[in-house]
């Protein structure tokens, strides 16, 4: 996996967690699988990295966790999005949209040419 992809994933792991928790409360393993499934296997996180991100989100009040008894086996720590987390997710979505729009504009814009030391956009 290229380093850039790793950095992108690392930087956006909290947002991805908030996004998958928007649907329903999940435990750590299910969060990792949900991100994988929803991204059609394009985003395979370093699963250990989920937990520092979850702690950070919890410390900031964006998620809360409770140990829920399971029908089979031991209780598991399940994370739920809070109202503050929902608001944070909306902010992050808006930020991402602005960023993606800006990148797309650059990628798809008519390419500038170098004229006399100054970049001049080619006419569309």
């Amino acid at each position: 996996m290229p380093a850039t992809d790793d950095q992108l994933k690392k930087g956006n792991t909290p947002t991805l967690i908030l996004a998958v928790l928007e649907g329903e409360p999940l435990h750590g393993y299910a969060i990792a699988r949900a991100i994988e499934t929803l991204s059609a296997d394009a985003l395979r996180l370093n699963e250990g990295a989920l937990y520092p991100a979850l702690r950070s989100l919890e410390q900031n009040g964006f998620v809360v966790s409770v140990w829920e008894p399971q029908p089979t086996g031991a209780a598991r720590r399940v994370y739920t999005l809070t109202d503050a987390g929902r608001a944070e997710l909306q902010d992050k979505k808006a930020q991402w949209q602005r960023f993606a729009d800006a990148v797309n504009r650059v990628l798809n814009a008519p390419k500038p040419t170098l004229a006399g030391g100054n970049y001049v956009a080619e006419p569309a």
Partner: peptide, 20 residues
């Protein structure tokens, strides 16, 4: 392998706690 290096993970968890 999916979890990554235990020391790095532990250190990150400790740092996250310290940040709090």
């Amino acid at each position: 392998t999916q979890f990554g290096d235990a020391r790095t993970l532990g250190k990150t968890m400790r740092q996250t706690w310290n940040e709090r």
